[in-house]
Every structure is written in structure tokens, then in C-alpha cells.
Amino acid sequence: MKADKSLLSGSTTLLVLSLLSGGDKYGYQMIAELEEKSDHTFSMKEGTLYPILHTLEKSGAVESYEKEAPTGRTRKYYHITKKGLRLLGEKKEEWASFSQAVNAVLAGSAPAMA
């Protein structure tokens, strides 16, 4: 099942930071990993990733550096900073309370749906 675009947009930062917390990655690698881990649920427009990465870099949540990828090409790698890890923690909490609230509403309205 493909996710609704609007559902995805708010949580992209969380997903990007979460991916980077597992190690330094370059853009395409992150897209490929996201698709693979979500079993192709998250197939957003790939370009969307870059404004997010550049904004995170500007705010100091990630840093970038150039390095040769295993393919032999030079790639721009992103690395999560301490500030980024703190932001990830906040975003995770936000997501938990948000999903909890959504689940609570869904649970309350469940009998009516049945």
C-alpha cells in the first residue's frame, strides 16, 4: 500500500534523521534504504529529500562531506550531529504522542466502524 502524501510530509524529517542515526549516508542511498525498509510504502518524489537535507544542514542537525562511494563515484555524505540526535529524540516523542492520539481516536470510533 502506498502512503498518502500528506501523511508522509510531516514525518520525513523524522525518517531522514532516523536513517542517518544508523550511519553516514548519501542521498540516493537514503531513498533506496527508505523504500526497502518500508517495503515500498514510502515512495515519495525523490527530489523532496534534498530540501530537507539542506535545511537540516543549515540548522546544524546534519553535516556533509564528500567521499568516494563504493561505486567509485564521489558522493556527498550526510552525518547526523549531536544537535540532530537531540532533534531526532524530540521528533520521536512527537510522533509517539501523535500516533497514540490517532490510535485512541480510532479505538474510540472502532465500534461505529464495525
Binding site: 518524489k45 525523490e46 527530489g47 523532496t48 534534498y50 530540501p51 539542506h54 535545511t55 544542514e57 543549515k58
Partner: peptide, 17 residues
């Protein structure tokens, strides 16, 4: 095509640049 609309991408990048 998978990248999406270049104009939308350009406008978003312009905000962080």
C-alpha cells in the same frame, strides 16, 4: 521522473539557499 517537479524542488531548495 522519480525526482518530481524540478520547479517545486528548485523553489524548496531556494529557501535553504
Amino acid at each position: 521522473a522519480a525526482m518530481g517537479d524540478p520547479e517545486a524542488l528548485g523553489r524548496e531548495l531556494d529557501k535553504s539557499h
